[in-house]
Design a protein around this nucleic acid. Sequence first.
DNA 1: TGAGTTGAAATTATAGATAATTCCTGCAAT
DNA 2: ATTGCAGGAATTATCTATAATTTCAACTCA
Lengths: 221, 221
Amino acid sequence: MATTEDTIAVRISKELADRIISGVIEPGSRLRQDHVAEEFGTSHVPVREAFRRLEAQGLAISEPRRGVRVAAFDLGEVREVAEMRAALEVLALRHAAPHLTPAILDRAEEATKAGDKSRDVRSWEEANRTFHRLILTPCNMPRLLSTIDDLHAASARFLFAAWRSEWETRTDQDHRAILSALRQGNTESAAATLGRHVQWIGQKPVKTASGRTRDAFAIVG
Amino acid sequence: MATTEDTIAVRISKELADRIISGVIEPGSRLRQDHVAEEFGTSHVPVREAFRRLEAQGLAISEPRRGVRVAAFDLGEVREVAEMRAALEVLALRHAAPHLTPAILDRAEEATKAGDKSRDVRSWEEANRTFHRLILTPCNMPRLLSTIDDLHAASARFLFAAWRSEWETRTDQDHRAILSALRQGNTESAAATLGRHVQWIGQKPVKTASGRTRDAFAIVG
DNA sequence: TGAGTTGAAATTATAGATAATTCCTGCAAT
DNA sequence: ATTGCAGGAATTATCTATAATTTCAACTCA
């Protein structure tokens, strides 16, 4: 990774984003600039800029003069992100479809296979993100793609929060259906399947700290 | 405006956003932190934070160690924003529809009338934004609404760039059709009209600095 | 003409000062 | 005894001032 190219603020924001997404830092916990600054061996100014970036991605919320907290989320926000992804990824796919080459679709199929073989959440999520990115990037709409990227980050966070450790391998039929429709030039069918696929919200019982079990929800597509 | 509540960085970002949107600062021109800092009577640190906010809204782009520029835009980006707005506003309207009250619809009609009577771009834009905000806010999806807000800011910028001074009053049939459909409880029809409405791209010949005329484009909905 | 170098200007980072908020402790009142 | 309210210390966010890199352009010399 070309970390030397980036500014310190960018480096810090990437590292913090990774921790928030993976759940190392819990939702609602405070991000204290002096602590972060000390950890990264810098002063607090670049840390503040990193906070602004996280805020823009929706990973943190800041209240003036009261500091920054890791954004909390509930089932409502999971649904919201799922629906926004459905709307925007369908839009992106419609524009990308004419520019999709067999080579790209082959790589997307590789990503699907990698996802099916994944034995942990983390590698599944990476494969899944690769698939979506591959078929959407050719739409050539930078603003749209960057918004979708932020939504994927949120999705990954929900996913890791629910499926902290356990993960059962499963074959992704939707991805295959989308690829097959795209190969046949049937864009509308592919878009429709993608829209449904992304809105599917998985449900899983998890044990809370108090020993009780409750349901956790996440986007699994 | 409760400017004392905000932090200095927020105040600066709002003021700069306003200037960028209204076209006072031209696309591509550099934003120099020292100059801005001097103008606002502060140091450069809050200015840098303001720049990060503008970046997140898509109004500015920053290249590491090379400064911040006002984002440029072309017809492609106008189209992109129009399509994103169509997708997201339709989504928002579907969720807002069940919560719309006659009182809200009446206020939306007032906003439409105000837009029809507007004799300059600025007040038309404000009325138009009020209309959209009124019928979408009840969807209760904060993330979606804030994304739509950023897109509206971009739209306004395109609009002001094209219709710098001249503006001809026109009655907005789409807004009326949307309201009438909503009053009859026909959400799908309202959503379809809104989707088309927002994607309509106005076209207008403008004189360039070199005396030639070319076409300018903007979202007029 | 063109490559290399120097110097001014701007961005980025550091350290320190200021102001606000939180948290704790002690006292009073119910 | 417990709740509620001050007051003050400690923590934290915000801003200013200053220093260190980096970039860009102009100028010199081959």
